[in-house]
């Protein structure tokens, strides 16, 4: 079982305030949070940080979340390839959700329907904490 203090989360979110709130909540809970503001930054940080879990937005500058997801799931590094990914997006149509799961997302949360507490629960569930 992983220790909360050692868990690294990569949060990929382009909205400054949402990123700030989410980071604050997760840091207070003892997680180590790394931030990326676009898809390109996310892919760079991914190799450097090697996170235990990724929170990924869909609509992102430069490279969108679907593409990031695709690149992670076909990454040459097996550990990175298998990193659990929770999609955090305000796109919530069936085709968006289906596409994310087809590309290998572990969970999909519509941001406006959940709170940071719910996100925390999903992270714990995904990492069996």
């Amino acid at each position: 079982m992983l220790n909360k203090q050692e868990i690294k989360i990569l949060l990929v979110e382009d909205d400054n305030f949402l990123r700030e709130i989410c980071t604050k909540k997760l840091t207070k809970q003892g997680f180590i949070v790394y931030e990326a503001i676009d898809g390109e930054q996310a892919l760079k940080k991914l190799e450097k940080v090697r996170p235990d879990i990724i929170l990924l937005d869909i609509i992102l500058p430069i490279i969108d979340g679907f593409e990031v997801l695709k690149q992670i799931r076909s990454h040459k590094d097996k550990k990175i390839q298998k990193t659990p990914i929770i999609i955090l997006s305000n796109l919530g149509q069936k085709n968006d959700v289906d596409k994310a799961f087809t590309l290998g997302a572990n969970n999909y949360l519509i941001k406006a329907h959940f709170t940071t507490d719910d996100i925390l629960d999903k992270i714990k569930k995904e990492l069996s904490l």
Binding site: D15, L18, A112, T116
Partner: peptide
């Protein structure tokens, strides 16, 4: 609706954190 959901999410998340006594 997609554009509206983002600011509504920031309001929801920040108020919830304050209500939960996180700050």
């Amino acid at each position: 609706t997609h554009q509206l959901r983002t600011p509504l999410t920031t309001i929801k998340w920040s108020i919830k954190m304050i209500l939960d006594g996180d700050v």
